[in-house]
């Protein structure tokens, strides 16, 4: 029997998974999937800073919104740093991602140890951001995740044709006069939103998997983009829900790991039944 709280957590994680799958499909085809890893790691200093600030101001320590805002701001800084590093062309994207994600993560870890020396309120639940703990999801968090999922899907649907053209052939799309910068920015914003929203449930270490694994699995077994996107969303939702269920049943298993392992089952099945 599934209780009310568990149901909330399941639905919230399913919505997050669906949004990740849909956004991840485009990120994968655009060659931007690893940015999710940079975003996840770059979010940590922001989460820590926001919680320290909340503690200093005497605000509610367990409220999620300021922490997510901090996460988004610091991830955005990480992306700006990434762009600055790659702008000259001397540092390649993969090297820059490595530098940025480790730098921000190291900074966040130092901040975390500072927070741990502080009174209880400042560090409550912060470590959940690393490995993910969906069990603490409230009804409000689940609603937020659901709304986010719907929003992401609406944006993807509204930009479907230009995004597809951009992912397949940037030069051609550009020659047609499509607003490449804005399309890429929209995709990046979606990626950022999904990663940040997924942090408390899945954790920053594994949020990248929620974006890549369902999309990569769906790509193996589908022939057209609409089918790939729908399947990636469905796989993401299934992985999110089943991972959340596992981690609420077995308290010791972090949600992030459970979600990713559930997703990998789907990926394994896709590998076995991939199109030729």
């Amino acid at each position: 029997m599934i209780g009310h709280n568990t149901l909330i957590v399941l639905l919230g994680c399913a919505a997050l998974g669906a949004a990740s799958g849909v956004v991840g499909a485009f990120a994968l085809l655009r060659g931007r999937a690893l940015l999710a890893d940079a975003i996840g790691h770059a979010a940590l200093p922001g989460v820590v800073a926001a919680s320290l600030l909340m503690a200093a101001l005497g605000g509610p320590a367990r409220s999620l919104a300021p922490l997510l805002l901090g996460a988004a701001l610091s991830a955005w800084l990480g992306l700006l740093a990434l762009r600055a590093l790659t702008a000259s062309g001397r540092i390649r994207q993969d090297a820059a991602i490595g530098v940025v994600l480790s730098a921000f993560y190291a900074l966040g870890t130092v901040g975390l140890s500072v927070a741990q020396a502080m009174p209880e309120a400042a560090q409550a639940g912060l470590s959940h951001f690393i490995l993910g703990q969906a069990a603490t999801m409230t009804e409000g968090d689940a609603l937020l995740a659901g709304g986010l999922a719907l929003g992401c899907m609406a944006v993807i649907a509204a930009l479907f044709h230009p995004l597809r053209a951009l992912c397949f052939d940037e030069a051609f799309a550009r020659s047609q006069g499509l607003p490449i910068r804005w399309l890429d920015l929209a995709l990046l914003a979606l990626l950022l939103a999904v990663c940040v929203a997924g942090l408390p449930a899945v954790g920053l270490l594994l949020v990248v998997a929620l974006l890549i694994v369902p999309a990569a699995a769906a790509r193996l077994v589908t022939r057209g983009l609409p089918a790939m996107v729908v399947l990636a969303g469905a796989l993401g939702a299934a992985a999110g829900a089943s991972g959340a269920l596992i981690s609420t049943r077995f308290e010791n298993i972090p949600t992030g790991a459970a979600v990713v392992l559930a997703g990998l089952l789907g990926f394994g099945a896709a590998l076995a039944f991939q199109r030729r």
């Binding site: 085809l29 597809r164 799309a173 790509r219 589908t222």
Partner: peptide, 22 residues
């Protein structure tokens, strides 16, 4: 290896005359 048919790709040429969804 992009997930698209020949028709999907050629139809991209008509994008400036189309709405962006559906």
């Amino acid at each position: 290896d992009f997930p698209a048919s020949a028709l999907d790709i050629v139809a991209m040429a008509r994008l400036p005359r189309m709405r962006w969804w559906g």
